[in-house]
Design a protein around this nucleic acid. Structure first.
Lengths: 335, 335
DNA sequence: CCATCGTTCTACAACGTTGTAGGCAACGTT
DNA sequence: AACGTTGCCTACAACGTTGTAGAACGATGG
């Protein structure tokens, strides 16, 4: 059976509260008493009941990370960094998948995990600012650009500038017919909108036309969607000499479609992605990409949450920016 | 402020317990009373305090999944299936990363999350049966072949047979110098041992020599390790005509190394992996592999846990086997 | 020798929930 | 008319923990 403070107390011949004090490191406990209690704890293999502790203290030591899908490598890698960053604060991370569905995201935001978690790090895809308005609950940190003017703390990267820079790199390499894969309806994808804006900025600055037939939408951002979009571009006959995919999995799908079409990358078509997932470092060819500093994103998010928990919950929401860099690999190098 | 049963009760003009009964779907509540209570719940946006509920009931509705690393695609995909399977039981899944380190795995097994979770699904890499002996705590389901004779329920696939079958397939295709990548010291990798055994079985049955120089170890099973091992095989001059990698990420790394060496897959060297991760369906070439039924594995694990929770905790441990199939793609097809 | 103070410890209540026991009507049965 | 049964509801206690208040004790200072 599981042991309680009471069992330890009886064995050590002290009160329940004294055991509690020992467990919590309270200073005014005589060394010999402390020793007796610790011995009893060890003998009974006592572990605190976290639910009871939480009920009393109002803290669980658990935070949640809600992401659309774990088998999207970007989120899996991010999850890993968040778990690591949270460990530094003694927190356990509960990971929730929303599937990117608005309904599920609302459930998560309004706290299905209520009372179980101290805080929430949330990467929404479909949520709107209205969904968040009037939430009094758990402190929350949003990742990404979705919900720009909400009431919660945020961590993002400058998508527009990053997209502009990687597009500019393609232009510098001499590409002139640069396609984009991954556009979405405005109400769906905030990242898509911003990356498209950066792409368009770069073209405009270089005096190139923005050609709608070169912009391919992608409902989701999986490999299959990237492959489908690329095949569409190829069969439509627009013949791009470079492709900017709005994330790496799209790009990996595009690489596949180009390969099937007998086109060489980067000789015939250059390809760039966004996210710097591990696959891109081993794909054939390796993938040039925008590499957000995921460790930093995770660290900032956890830190914001910690400040919110320990400090002023009513303080105005902060929006922090994490750095990124361009990771240039084979898919853009003309050897 | 957060609302309690008491607040709802006052607003609805009933006792606290009646509200509790409504929340829990107790049948003997007059429809009009139920309506009043539900209205009050909606108005106050009441959510149960899970810690308090747990304290009273001894159940949290949370199970944990402990895996070595989330950014290993196989575990990310598995995690997704476990979350889905658990949702059918109304459970939330807390995901823990052990890093595959024995110390951390012991902490998880002995219950760092003690009292917070109802059960644990655990994919250990380094744990031993002794580490598990004498654990009285949370019900646990182990995934994989590590800890074969422990006291806990298990779900696995028949690694030896699967490895034998995919090796036999290579032999049928006419390959004679088949390398293996991913062997490990016996005390480290149970999967490695079993897959190596299946590989050796197939060679023996076909009358081929087991050549130690064709077997390359890999400390971890990441892409980088696969690439390193493959480069090692190539520079050692053993010239395999096929490679069986003990998982898909190793295989993706091997593909990369073969590409760098100017060798064509499958024309010069055929490559097979194990796990059927999504990347393998889009790699160049696409990867032939052993595809364990991950959905089934997850489902069985959750079901075992449910039985353990609702049924006899002292019942003898069960070991269930999940199916797999060979997924034959471009990396073995001679076109 | 008494008042004061810090140290060490204990008793009690409370966190929000649900199980148990029981009360009160309304109903059907004898 | 008396009785048991059923439906609906309430009061109370308990889950294991920690904050608060305060008791007991010895040490210190006047």
């Amino acid at each position: 059976m599981r042991q309680r403070l009471k069992d330890v107390a009886e064995r050590a011949g002290v009160s329940v509260k004294t055991v509690s004090n020992v467990v919590n490191g309270y200073v005014h406990v005589r060394p010999d008493t402390r020793a007796r209690v610790e011995e009893a704890i060890a003998e009974l293999n006592y572990r605190p009941n976290l639910s009871a502790r939480h009920l009393r203290k109002g803290r669980t030591g658990v935070i949640a990370l809600a992401v659309p899908e774990l088998d999207i490598p970007y989120f899996a890698e991010l999850a890993r960094y968040v778990v690591t960053a949270a460990a530094a604060y003694g927190w356990t991370v509960l990971i929730d998948q929303t599937g990117g569905r608005r309904e599920q995201e609302r459930v998560v935001a309004s706290g299905i995990t209520d009372h179980l978690i101290d805080g929430l790090i949330f990467s929404p895809l479909a949520l709107t600012a209205e969904d968040l308005a009037g939430l009094d609950g758990t402190p929350m940190v949003l990742l990404g650009e979705r919900v720009e003017h909400g009431p919660a703390d945020r961590v993002m990267i400058d998508n527009v500038t990053a997209a502009r820079e990687i597009t500019e790199h393609l232009i510098q390499l001499g590409h002139r017919r640069i396609a984009a894969i991954g556009s979405q309806r405005t109400d769906e994808g905030a990242s898509a909108r911003l990356r498209l804006a950066g792409y368009a900025d770069a073209l405009r600055a270089a005096g190139l036309d923005y050609d709608e037939t070169l912009v391919a939408p992608a409902l989701a951002w999986h490999r299959a969607d990237g492959a489908t979009a690329m095949r569409g571009l190829l069969t439509s006959g627009v013949r791009p000499d470079a492709v900017f995919c709005f994330n790496d999995t799209l790009a990996l799908g595009a690489l596949r479609a180009l390969h099937e079409a007998g086109l060489r990358v980067p000789e015939d078509v250059a390809v760039v992605g966004f996210d710097d997932i591990e696959d891109g470092r081993f794909s054939i060819p390796t993938l040039s990409t925008v590499a957000p500093d995921k460790a930093r994103i995770a660290h900032l998010a956890v830190e914001l949450l910690a400040n919110r928990l320990d400090g002023d919950r009513a303080a105005p929401a902060k929006a922090l920016s994490a750095p990124y860099r361009l990771e240039l690999r084979e898919s853009t190098q003309t050897r």
